[in-house]
Design a protein around this nucleic acid. Structure first.
Lengths: 124, 124
DNA sequence: CACTATACCTCGTAGCACAAGGTATATCAA
DNA sequence: TTGATATACCTTGTGCTACGAGGTATAGTG
């Protein structure tokens, strides 16, 4: 069935692993509440997830850059106390992307929930 | 800080991506209910997740083999209608692994839930 | 003056999930 | 008979994500 290749072209294009994009989702979500800078986002993610998820700067910064390049975020450099911060703000495009990713996540999450089980509540 | 390398040894050992291991979790969970064979598991995952998650044979079989090698599963070949099936059964070790992965998943899932939002309920 | 915290960044790599393809048998239809 | 479809197993190569490590620079503290 190699002939019904998705994108056409040179071949060999794989779909992103089904569980990926969570870092992106978290970033977009946080930035939907207020504008923040990278280092702050790193700390914030650990905080809001109750230490459950801890993403390093090596994960955050590249994602931030990608999102900006894609037009989902707008960056603004600002100097505070002699330190340069890069603040990110969600654009309309980013908002849409957030909604899409959010939906995808919910689908997956509820799928897994269903598989993991009835959770053995008190039965009727 | 390269000196506080986790396992010691040759260097360069990375942690598994924080969201991985879900295929494994699903397989273990299904096999905790009853013994099944590979091809059946492929279909089953699509079913129980309500089409939300669809893992191909290229994902399932290798994971199955790994789990068996690790002693979490016990395999048994059986011939049905002239077709050879490899049935997998959960071992005690597999049961423990399932519980561990299940716990980890819950931690992560609730972390993400928390981040994604209070869901804007009626506030006090 | 060293150490820690803040704040940005990039590079190399490990590991995972993926598509594609390959083997073989059974069933059904043309 | 031939071909297609479904069952049932498998492995190989690769794309991509997330990861750790490391690098720069400034500010504050002991």
């Amino acid at each position: 069935m190699a002939f019904l290749n998705r994108g056409a072209g040179t071949m060999g294009q794989t779909n992103p692993p089904f569980m990926s994009g969570v870092p992106e989702l978290l970033l977009l979500r946080l930035l939907a509440q207020r504008e923040m800078y990278g280092y702050e986002l790193v700390k914030s993610i650990r905080l809001v997830t109750g230490e459950a998820i801890s993403l390093g700067e090596g994960v955050i910064y590249p994602v931030l850059h990608n999102l900006e390049r894609g037009g989902a975020l707008k960056a603004k450099r600002r100097s505070v106390d002699g330190r340069t911060r890069v603040y990110y703000r969600l654009t309309a495009k980013g908002r849409k992307r957030l909604d899409r990713l959010h939906g995808e996540w919910q689908r997956i999450e509820s799928g897994i929930s269903a598989a993991l089980g009835p959770v053995n509540h008190v039965s009727t």
